[in-house]
Design a protein around this nucleic acid. Sequence first.
RNA 1: GGUGGGGUGGCUGAGUGGUCGAAAGCGGCGGUCUUGAAAACCGUUGAGGGUUUAUCCCCUCCUAGGGUUCGAAUCCCUACCCCACCGCCA
Length: 435
Amino acid sequence: MLDIKLLRQDIDAVAASLQKKHFSLDIALFKQLEADRKDSDIQTQSLQSERKKASKKIGQLVQSGKSVDEAKAEVAEILKTIDADLQSYVEKNRAANEALNDFMMAVPNMPDASVPEGKTEEDNKLINTWGEPKNFAFAVKDHVDLGNDVGGLDFDLAAKLTGSRFAVMRGGIARMHRALIQFMLDKHTEEHGYEEVHVPFIVNAESLRGTGQLPKFEEDLFKIRHDGADFYLIPTAEVPVTNLVRDKIVESTNQDGFTALPLRFACHSPCFRSEAGSSGRDVRGMIRQHQFEKVELVQMVLPEESDATLAALTGHAESILQALELPYRKVQLCGGDLGFSALKTFDLEVWLPSQDTYREISSCSNFGDYQARRMMARYRNAQGKAELLHTVNGSGLAIGRTLLAVMENYQQEDGSIVIPEALKAYMGGMTVIKA
RNA sequence: GGUGGGGUGGCUGAGUGGUCGAAAGCGGCGGUCUUGAAAACCGUUGAGGGUUUAUCCCCUCCUAGGGUUCGAAUCCCUACCCCACCGCCA
């Protein structure tokens, strides 16, 4: 959520900023909602104040010796006039606040000044490329065909079990999938200072509101009903991990299991996405699945550090690609491609020989205080004052896409797949997955 | 699933229906002392919102939602969560 004070003070500036995200802010509606809120607020509060005074007077009169009935009789008249109005103002106030809150929850975060103008991913800004795409002396296969060759990747079987956009992995492919998870977690915890966490894969609506998936993007989620209550399968570990600090004030000393900022968490989890609205896109293979795994990096940091944290965290994700010797490029998302809650995002795109192009494998974002305000996630500053912290996260990396990138980039003419050097220790001596 | 006990400020933990936003301790912050630190001592310390140049002042919040009452942290109901024991089970 944006700071409502910004909208009260200079809504034109906010609207101008959101223009970059191609979001048009309804200024007139905000002003109306705010006026309603303020009016009902003032009326309600002054009536409540009068009422409290009258009630207190009864207590005082009783203590000074009067009977309860006598005391009540003295203020009965006042209470009667107050109650005639109070009820309706309370209701007006409740409705006004709810309407205003609904409005605010649907306003996206404002983009950072560095965000390039643009509408689609075509307009993203190339930051740099790393590594050289290999020149294959034979016709390259894509991971679906390679998976067929080695017999480790089966989409038809998954379609029978469940439906489209799922995969069954076997043997060396399944092993490498697991190896990638272990490798990434080890690297982030041992070399980059992250604490490993394991969290629930089912969350409640409150958690999704905290990170910004709700209320606007419910159709992207898998929803479960249990005992009459709604739950959701997580679309990313970002949701449960970031919500670890919801409704918390992170102390400067270790008291409740959380130490001082920055907090750095690395989390492996499955992710579930309905992919509503992307039917027809990437239908072949495991680029776009309803279920995939990811190692997510999440940091809670001081406001003044979040920009540097984003750069560092993106570097952590890059280090995985570099260790696996997978060519990639880094782009900064333009305004139109930027996510709802993000103020700045770098995408890492890995080289896929079969598609002769780079495809997204990681997305690293700074959310500023946007998620923190929704979650009421704060820290205590040097003056002892509770302030909103900043959240930064990114994939480090998406496992399924890494797996297919390895398969395609490490393929040999006979359809076998060489195990990258960095993964060998995790593959029990295997050096190649044979066709 | 059964029975019982609980959910209070950053944390632990008191709280009689009537200035209780809430004792006490811990922690935090400021100070005295010290070359410096620790210890000790003194002071201070909940959050959100409204109004205001600012102070003042006002409202809301003791898990959540209802209810009783002139008045609820305190009484009643419901939900959720936690703890203990029993049952069942991966």
